[in-house]
Amino acid sequence: MYTFINTVLIGITSGAIYSLMAIALVLVWRSTRVVNFAQAGQALLSTYVGYACIQQFNSFWLALIVSMLAGALIGAFIDAVLMRTLFRRVSHGPIAGVAPIIATLGLLGLIRAGLGLFVGNQDVIIRPPVSNVGYTVAGHTLAFSPLKLVIVSTSIILMIALSILFAKTNLGLSLRAAAFSPEIARLAGVRVDRIRTLGWAIAGAAGAAAGMLQTPNGNGSFSPDSLDFSLLLVFGFIAAVIGGLESLIGAVLGALLLGLVLAFVLTYISGSLVFITAFVLLILVLLIRPQGIIGAKRGRRA
């Protein structure tokens, strides 16, 4: 019984982190139709900024905010400088669709190599801001610690903030309109180019939060070539695809499902099957329900 509960708790925690990454990928996909491989690099860079901030001011919370701001700036910069130019230069022709995606792949390599060049490839450590020792219930230690509570609740707060932004504000309306129908949004007076850059910025902040929460949840250490950020990207992608790639709610549900499935495989079957399960799940979803498991026929929803 406790094994089961612990498995669920582990699944929810990692699902919360994947969902931030999945949200980042969905936001960029919706606003510019780019599958953004660089999101892993952006998260890495932002987490590094967060790490530097912790070294300086010794506050995880300040560092989380600074890293999200840095993530937003990096995202906005990539869209405004790189993507906008790229869209102009290759608006027609056979590579118009894939050029931006390949560019993000290049950018991912560039960010990793560039960061490695500047700060070196040795591991640095972000310590958990609160204890990572599990709560004890009736003599059993749960796989849920104050740190995991912080991770889950930070993710929930960010998601609530995002849903309010999207559903209730004029800015959110502009973001949705520009994603659904750029031409009509333009005719209505939405400055679509700026709104797209804003979409990239929000995605950058969400990705940064994923990086900042993931690192202390693991062993705390990371470096420019650590695998953790690539895995974050891959799991974020799988979650986003399960959720239909168009929907923020879908991304969150996809991430929770992925987190739970992987946690159960890890606990009840074998740790070595985790990756295989993730990719099999991805391929199965693409084959059986390419619109995502919760992607409705009507498609694009907030």
Binding site: L173, S174, A177, F180, S181, A185, L187, A188, G299
Partner: peptide, 26 residues
């Protein structure tokens, strides 16, 4: 200058209210 483009220029995913609000968003 306001343009109603060809083929019913509304955004189907948005509500009627949101479509109207969009028109005055700036």
């Amino acid at each position: 200058i306001s343009h109603v483009s060809e083929g019913k220029s509304v955004i189907p995913e948005l509500s009627v209210r949101e479509n109207l609000t969009l028109g005055a968003i700036w």
